[in-house]
């Protein structure tokens, strides 16, 4: 089994190298790319490139088969911002929420250090990568606010949570002053400051990683994202735009007229894909950033 995997990986690497000798061209456009618009006219002038994905083969737990084989990518920039438009087939919209349910997602990875291409699988120690990670779940946060238990389970009933008896109507002066923050001290994810436990206002996370499982979220990302799932006959597809400033200080710095690299990953949440269970590119895809005209 391991031999077959190794063979698959090697043949894919060889094939991938040839396919991406030229790379993706980020076309220069004179548009405001900080605003998200999936149907903007300039997208029609950029041919989508097909990116081949393969089930993540390196670390367990890993998916048994490739669920997303193709990812269509378009890239444009205006000298200050770069925008990506992704499209992939997914028969259902999955936004996570209840136990055992996961979110559809897409991620782009960039090298951080200039003139150094880190290992494709989320970098390595002292060879970091910079990741933009959009999730349908985060998008729901952005559109509808942080998902409360009532949102996730509309028919649930709960008599009382800790400290909920204390509010502005309490007779005791001290209880009147109980803040939401104090109430949530028992909500461990929040009190530990885990970024997962707070509303994702941008729909996209910006992360740094130095190897598998090491990603950590950067606060106050400037990247923006918007996605839409649409039904296509019996099938369905996601169209997602992620926009980022060319220069993200502390992350990756892209420059017009220069080359960089990218890698991609897609998760089909409805099929149980999450974390390492994903479809990925096996080689870095060159990114050629057109010079300003």
């Amino acid at each position: 089994m391991k031999k077959i995997y190794a063979l698959m990986v090697v043949s894919y690497l060889l094939w991938g190298q040839g396919l991406w000798a030229e790379g993706l061209i980020a076309k220069y456009v004179k548009e405001d790319l900080s605003k998200l618009n999936l149907e903007a006219l300039f997208w029609k002038e950029v041919t989508p490139e097909t990116i081949q994905l393969i089930a993540q083969p390196m670390v367990a737990p890993r998916p048994q088969k490739t669920l997303t084989e193709k990812l269509w990518v378009q890239v444009v920039h205006n000298g200050e911002w770069m925008a990506f438009r992704f499209k992939w087939k997914d028969k259902e919209k999955s936004e996570a929420g209840p136990l055992g349910k996961f979110s559809d997602a897409v991620a782009i990875q960039f090298p951080v250090k200039e003139k150094e291409v880190p290992p494709i699988f989320m970098g390595a120690k002292d060879s970091p990568v910079h990741i933009l990670h959009w999730r349908a779940q985060y998008q729901k946060d952005k559109e509808k606010g942080f998902q409360t238990m009532k949102d996730i389970y509309p028919n649930m009933n709960m008599d009382m949570y800790p400290l909920e008896f204390a509010n502005q109507y309490s007779h005791d002066e001290m209880l009147k002053k109980i803040t939401e923050e104090q109430r949530e001290v028992f909500v461990s994810g929040k009190s530990a400051g885990n970024p997962q436990s707070f509303q994702k206002i941008k729909g996209v996370d910006e992360m740094m990683a130095e190897g598998f499982g090491s990603s950590s979220v950067i606060e106050n990302t400037r990247a923006e994202a918007q996605g839409i799932w649409q039904k296509k006959g019996k099938e369905g597809e996601w169209v997602v735009q992620i926009s980022r400033p060319l220069a993200l200080e502390g992350g990756s710095i892209l420059k017009a007229g220069q080359k960089s690299f990218m890698a991609f990953a897609v998760w089909q949440g409805g099929e149980g894909e999450v974390g390492c269970r994903k479809s990925v590119t096996m080689t870095w895809v060159p990114l050629i950033i057109e010079d300003k005209k």
């Binding site: 737990p61 136990l99 996730i152 909500v187 461990s188 994810g189 997962q196 999450v274």
Partner: peptide, 21 residues
């Protein structure tokens, strides 16, 4: 990711859908 929920055979790791961890 709920990998611990999947893997623990005794099912003593539990997912909190509110904190998402």
């Amino acid at each position: 990711y709920q990998e611990c929920v999947r893997a623990c055979p005794y099912k003593k790791s539990m997912y909190n859908p509110y904190t998402r961890v």
